[in-house]
């Protein structure tokens, strides 16, 4: 049955795009989670919603307009954080609601593209086009190349910005670059699981990996594995049982988190028993 499903072109595209998104969201997500910025992806996808509405209205490929607006939003958040004393979560809330408001307003004005917009709200992995797949693969390639090249610097600013700055790193430039990468990752994930569930894809595999991993690289690999497993299993299960793919992916991801939690607890109990003995 699984092999039969793989023969369909839409399923091949879905899995290709899905695996690419799984890798990107979990790699970028680990830095976001450790920087206590888990909801950044949520904010970016909400801002992108406004950009997608603009694209659909102006007949431009919506992923690009969504990407453009979310990158502007990410740079805006970073600038606001650096130059004002407005708390970080408040700046996220301001831009998140503004992006969503643009989308809602444009929907109410035009009314003609709500169906397309809904596919971005709730995700549509089984409907990804050849164009979508190529765009997602290209963006994934760019993100991963930059992360590999700047890996050590990104780990350093995630561990301690002050020490990284003293070592001679240009923190401001790295932070701007990182938020651009994170917003691209969020918009790419949005195509798969929808605006409302982007955070799940960025956060859950990483929190799961943090329960099990020892070492930054190993934790990243566990997170990528959990993410790929969730996307592939979720997509196939959703097709087999006619369920919403985004929901299936996120629920399978959540199930792996609960399993990891159980493993962690049992390990802890074993350790405590050993100490008592």
């Amino acid at each position: 049955m699984v092999l039969e499903v793989l023969e369909f072109g839409f399923m091949q595209r879905a899995l290709m795009a899905g695996i690419a998104v799984a890798i990107t969201s979990s790699v970028i997500g680990l830095f976001l989670v450790l920087r206590r910025n888990s909801l950044f992806g949520d904010a970016m996808s909400h801002i992108a919603f406004g950009g997608i509405a603009i694209g659909l209205m102006a007949n431009i490929y919506p992923l690009w307009t969504g990407l453009g607006l979310s990158i502007l939003g990410a740079l805006g958040i970073t600038k606001l954080r650096q130059s004002t004393k407005i708390p970080a979560d408040a700046t996220v809330a301001i831009l998140l609601s503004s992006g969503l408001a643009i989308g809602i307003m444009l929907v109410s004005v035009s009314g003609g593209f709500t169906l397309d917009l809904f596919s971005f709200l709730f995700g549509s992995i089984l409907l990804v086009s050849v164009n979508d797949t190529l765009a997602i693969l290209a963006l994934t390639g760019i993100i991963l190349t930059i992360v590999i090249l700047l890996y050590k610097k990104l780990v350093y600013i995630t561990f301690d910005e002050e020490q990284a700055q003293v070592s001679g790193l240009d923190i401001s430039r790295l932070n701007y670059l990182f938020v651009v990468l994170a917003s691209v990752a969020a918009v790419v994930s949005m195509r798969l699981v929808g605006i409302l569930l982007v955070s799940a894809l960025i956060v859950i595999p990483n929190v799961t990996a943090l329960l099990l991993g020892r070492g930054f690289k190993k934790t990243m690999l566990i997170s990528v594995s959990v993410s790929i497993f969730s996307v592939v299993a979720g997509t196939i299960v959703s097709y087999a049982f006619n369920l919403a793919p985004a929901g299936s992916i996120v629920l399978i991801s959540a199930a792996t988190f609960v399993t990891a939690l159980a493993i962690r607890f049992s390990r802890q109990k074993e350790k405590e028993a050993e100490i008592k003995a």
Binding site: F159, S167, G215, F216
Partner: peptide, 11 residues
């Protein structure tokens, strides 16, 4: 924070 001591020193 998942980095090992070795990874932190390598920074």
């Amino acid at each position: 924070f998942p980095a090992t001591i070795e990874e932190i020193v390598s920074l």
